[in-house]
């Protein structure tokens, strides 16, 4: 019979600590939309320092980029001038379309979908490890932030809040492989083309649309937008542009490589969507470990 006395107290203590930490991971990973008192204290005390150091880092990064990429900046400047000239024409057309759209919406009695209450926030820290794609912003529950609120920029969708302290919140970026978003192809709007955007660790910084049926109307250059399903993300926010379309590993469904509209490396200011309408269906609402596991299994 196995006797405990055969094990040294040191080994038992070591194993006890390992088991305790594993239990702690399991417990805190399940239900951790709010921080504990100690975490709140540490994060609240440190957030001004993080903000200051982040600004320093941003300045250093800008300086380094300016030094190393002077030619690229000149070239980019020339290209941007051309793009701007072209945009002016599009802008006029879009204004006309917007007016028409507004009139039609009024006629139909629809509430304007893009009228969300936005709260600006600054990015004060980024996860330095390569395991997670998260940022920390300088707004917390004191400012009305809650778990699952969508985070956007003028360019498009950034991610959503997943942990909230008094004055700071952690945001899970679209590029994190734990995140999945229901999307639409803007051009076709075929319901069958709704897929799931996931972080794509093999191509860092890119996203992947999976679960697209074989007949889905999607091609390179298409714009991907959020479908609004689940009540977490507002409908119609730009997610990115399709770079490649191909078959999945089993050859049954289509998948696409998407370049995100937002430059996640250069995020400095973001907006939190405060008032999205809650829908009954909740595809991407669950951020607990169990929820993510179940969600992943059911999606793949």
């Amino acid at each position: 019979m196995l006797r405990l006395t055969r094990f040294s107290p040191k080994l038992l203590g070591f194993l006890a600590i390992v088991i305790l930490l594993l239990a702690l991971i399991n417990f805190t990973g399940e239900h951790r939309s709010r921080y504990t008192f100690i975490e709140n204290l540490v994060l609240t005390a440190i957030s001004p320092v993080q903000g200051f150091i982040s600004e320093l880092g941003s300045s250093a990064s800008d300086f380094l980029q300016g030094v190393t990429g002077y030619r690229e900046i000149l070239e980019e400047n020339r290209e941007l001038r051309e793009v701007l000239a072209a945009r002016d024409t599009y802008r006029q057309e879009l204004l006309e379309l917007q007016k028409e759209n507004f009139r039609l919406r009024e006629m139909l009695g629809f509430q304007e979908r893009t009228e969300y209450e936005l709260l600006p926030a600054e990015v004060i820290a980024r996860d330095p490890t390569h395991w997670f794609e998260t940022i920390t912003i300088n707004r917390g529950y004191y400012h009305g932030i809650e778990e699952k609120m969508a985070v956007v920029t003028a360019e498009g969708l950034v991610g959503n809040v997943f942990q909230v302290s008094r004055n700071t919140s952690k945001v899970l970026l679209l590029t994190d492989s734990r995140r999945a978003v229901s999307i639409l192809v803007q051009r076709s709007r075929d319901p069958g083309t709704a897929g799931i955007v996931e972080g794509y660790p093999e191509e860092e910084g890119y996203l992947r649309v999976i679960n697209l049926p074989p007949e889905a109307n999607i091609q390179s250059g298409d714009t991907i937008i959020s479908s609004g399903m689940g009540g977490v993300f507002p409908k119609g926010l730009i997610v990115g542009e399709v770079m490649e379309v191909g078959k999945d590993q089993y050859g049954l469904l289509q998948q696409a490589l998407v370049r995100p509209a937002v430059n996640f490396n250069r995020l400095e200011e973001v907006f939190i969507v405060l008032d999205i309408r809650q829908e009954e269906e909740n595809i991407e609402g669950n951020f607990s470990m169990e929820g993510q596991r179940e969600g992943r299994e059911s999606l793949l």
């Binding site: 440190i46 320092v49 993080q50 150091i53 982040s54 320093l56 980024r126 996860d127 920390t136």
Partner: peptide
């Protein structure tokens, strides 16, 4: 703080 705010940028 350095890793999250400075190095990360």
């Amino acid at each position: 703080v350095l890793e999250g705010s400075f190095f990360a940028l």
